[in-house]
């Protein structure tokens, strides 16, 4: 698996979590990802991911006027999306534990 492919899978999961926290639009998500330290990823990366997640029925979107003015496309999680988030979270915790254990043991 290439670096970018691995990143995409991880960003997928993080996007689900961000959308789950609060219904939001693309730019907001990119900003949040940046704040969390994903600044090596170009912001536009999220859109193909959102398109796929929408096609797979994990997220839905509505166009709505924002407080600032222009219409924006707001995303929220579907039931399937929430389920996918739970699964991602479990997988990630498992992965994190394993990687940490390997690093800790082998690099001593």
């Amino acid at each position: 698996m290439s670096h970018t492919q691995m990143m995409k899978g991880i960003i997928d999961g993080c996007l689900l979590a961000i959308i789950d926290g609060k219904e939001c639009y693309g730019y907001e998500m990119a900003e949040r990802l940046g704040e969390y330290g994903f600044d090596a990823v170009s912001e536009g990366t999220i859109y193909p991911l959102l398109m796929r997640m929408q096609r797979e029925g994990l997220v839905t979107s509505v166009r709505r006027a924002s407080t600032a003015g222009p219409q924006r496309k707001y995303y929220s999680l579907t039931k399937e999306g929430k389920q996918a988030l739970v699964e991602f979270s479990l997988r990630w915790q498992q992965l994190e534990k394993s990687v940490n254990a390997v690093l800790k043991k082998e690099m001593e």
Partner: peptide, 27 residues
Amino acid sequence: KEITKELEDHLLEAEANGKSVDQVVGD
């Protein structure tokens, strides 16, 4: 139309915050 509008909105907001196109669409 939908995706170009969405990206246009994103670019507008990004540029207003002093970011460049490259930061949005990558290299």
